[in-house]
Computed example of a mutant assay.
Amino acid sequence: MNIFAIGDLHLSFANPKPMDIFGDNWTDHPEKIRRAWLESITEEDLVLIPGDISWAMNLEEARPDLDYIAELPGKKVMIRGNHDYWWSTVSKVRKALDPSISVLQNDSLKVTDDLVIAAARGWDSPGSFHFDEHDRTIYEREVGRLKLSLDHAVKQGATRIWVMLHYPPTNEKHQSSGFLDVLRQYPVEKVIYGHLHGKEGHRGALEGVHDGISYHLVACDYLDFTPLKLT
């Protein structure tokens, strides 16, 4: 088994929302993703999808987008992004999904005897552009949810943890944050996240190894719509 990651699929088959308004590279992006996915991923592999999966407003509208993911090879693990309005309660989402798709919310998934995937949506961190007191409330809640997921991973016997976030774990200046503080308290090896788009967003990405943890931006436009192999 190999582990891949790609986020921010921004699918919209039921009610098309063309993404090429954000750049010509987004033209026909679902087909680009499908083609690259089929070239590299097998049924034995695992794919991490850290949010912003569908533009749909409810589960019924999201069905064609979820079917698109289900038809691709491999097991998939997804979390909620800030644009996943179709994601109601986690129990309803789980009931609606194909068996090849798992979702995480305040919990974790054991992948091997020692490796566990933990996750949280995250939020903008203090010092980010336009961060205000309303953001602080959500930010503090998401820091707590990350800790809940990591504690769940430890209870599963994790000695190695990979973390999925939708938002980056710090601001564009890479300053200290509650997310980074929590991550350092656990045996976290990798953090994969999305949310950042375009040259301006990609420029502020936290990448590489910091304090022994490897960080990867996996927004699909950053990856040229090709899943990133992590193993």
Rank of each mutant, 00 (worst) to 15 (best):
M1V: 13
N2F: 03
F13R: 10
A14G: 05
P16M: 10
P16K: 07
P18G: 05
D20P: 07
N25F: 02
P30S: 12
K32T: 06
K32A: 09
I41T: 11
D45F: 08
L46W: 13
V47E: 01
A56W: 00
N58H: 15
A62R: 02
P64V: 03
D65T: 03
L66I: 09
K75W: 01
V77G: 03
I79C: 01
R80A: 10
N82S: 14
D84S: 09
W87L: 11
S91N: 09
A96P: 10
A96S: 15
A96L: 04
D98A: 13
P99L: 10
V103R: 00
D107Q: 08
L109H: 09
D113K: 13
L115D: 10
I117E: 01
A120T: 11
A120P: 05
R121T: 14
W123T: 00
D124C: 05
P126I: 01
F129G: 05
H130A: 10
F131W: 09
T137K: 11
T137Y: 07
Y139C: 04
E140V: 02
E140K: 10
E142V: 02
E142Y: 02
V143N: 00
V143T: 06
R145L: 10
L148G: 01
P168L: 04
E172Y: 11
Q175G: 15
S176H: 08
S176M: 12
S176Y: 10
S177M: 09
L180I: 14
P187D: 05
E189D: 12
V191Y: 00
H210R: 15
D211V: 00
L217Q: 00
D221S: 06
D221E: 11
L223I: 07
D224H: 07
L228G: 04
